[in-house]
């Protein structure tokens, strides 16, 4: 079997813009799910509202496409009602960190056995490019026409601080690493959070001097700092360049988790 078998072939091609990174993240997530060998009947995909949140609609399993920001609330309900189900959440930066911010920190705090894949394009893609809580300082959006002046949220740091068991960040360029990270997230009991930086050529790239999709991919690739390298820089007391972001496995621990199937509960 391959990840292609998880797509609803009748619904493809999807409606994402040419070069939109969301499709890549769906591929990587489905490849990881496929590698777990789970039955399609036992797997549920949940999402909120946004371009990223359209993902479950292209997947053959049962899914919930819920209201904006509430994907984690619905996913919590699914998991607590039937802990045997494997629940995977697709969400966007606006969906997860703006309107759904509270659900996010409390799902991390409760450490519910979910795997959450956030497609962070640093913008509200679906509604025309408004700034989101992760829009970097200086970036242009329709609500920050002179460049954003606010500091941005680091979603992975937020998840670590709030108590998630597994946290990793990769990008739409690092497809193999992302696939491996999602698989580790699926294997880890408790809340697993995988942040994937993606390009939104239509509403972010176009306004921020990335004329071609490939230009933004080059940027994403050039500004990714491996965690091991970051740690080495810190050890040597060197400064971390401000426009770089850390990629890699950022947290792995085993706090007590909620929503585990009875056989999985450890004494």
């Amino acid at each position: 079997m391959s990840f292609e078998d998880w797509f609803r072939q009748d619904r493809l091609p999807h409606i994402y813009c040419a070069g939109c990174g969301n499709g890549t993240i769906i591929n990587c997530t489905l490849a990881a799910v496929d590698a777990m060998g789970w039955a399609k009947e036992d797997t549920v995909f949940v999402s909120g509202i946004g371009c990223s949140s359209r993902a479950p609609g292209y997947i053959v399993t049962d899914s919930l496409h819920t209201t904006h920001g509430r994907a984690l609330a619905f996913a919590t309900g699914v998991k607590m009602a039937n802990p045997k189900l494997h629940v995977v959440v697709f969400t966007g930066d606006g969906d997860l960190a703006a309107i759904g911010g509270n659900h996010f920190i409390h799902a991390c705090r409760r450490n519910i056995d979910l795997t959450v894949v956030c497609m962070n394009n640093q913008i509200y893609g679906m509604t025309g490019g408004q700034g989101s809580p992760t829009t970097p300082r200086g970036c242009i959006s329709t609500t920050t026409p002179y460049g954003s002046t606010e500091p941005a949220f680091d979603l992975s740091e937020l998840a670590i601080a709030a108590g998630a068991n597994y946290v990793a960040r990769w990008t739409s360029y690092h497809v193999k690493e992302l696939e491996r990270a999602v698989k580790t997230g699926l294997e880890t009991p408790g809340f697993s959070f995988i942040e994937a930086l993606v390009q939104c050529p239509t509403n972010f790239g176009r306004r921020n001097k990335f004329r071609q999709v490939a230009d933004q991919i080059e940027y994403i690739k050039a500004h990714a700092l491996l965690k091991a390298k970051r740690d080495r820089l810190l050890e040597q007391g060197e400064r971390i360049p401000e426009d770089m972001y850390v990629v890699g496995e950022l947290m792995r621990r085993s706090r007590p988790a909620m929503g585990l199937a009875p056989t999985e509960v450890k004494p």
């Binding site: 797509f7 091609p13 994402y16 499709g23 890549t24 990587c28 696939e179």
Partner: peptide, 17 residues
């Protein structure tokens, strides 16, 4: 088994096979 496959994973539109 599948080898490499980076292009297929990267293609956002599931067009490579």
């Amino acid at each position: 088994r599948q080898l490499c496959g980076v292009c297929q994973l990267t293609c956002p539109d599931q067009a490579i096979h």
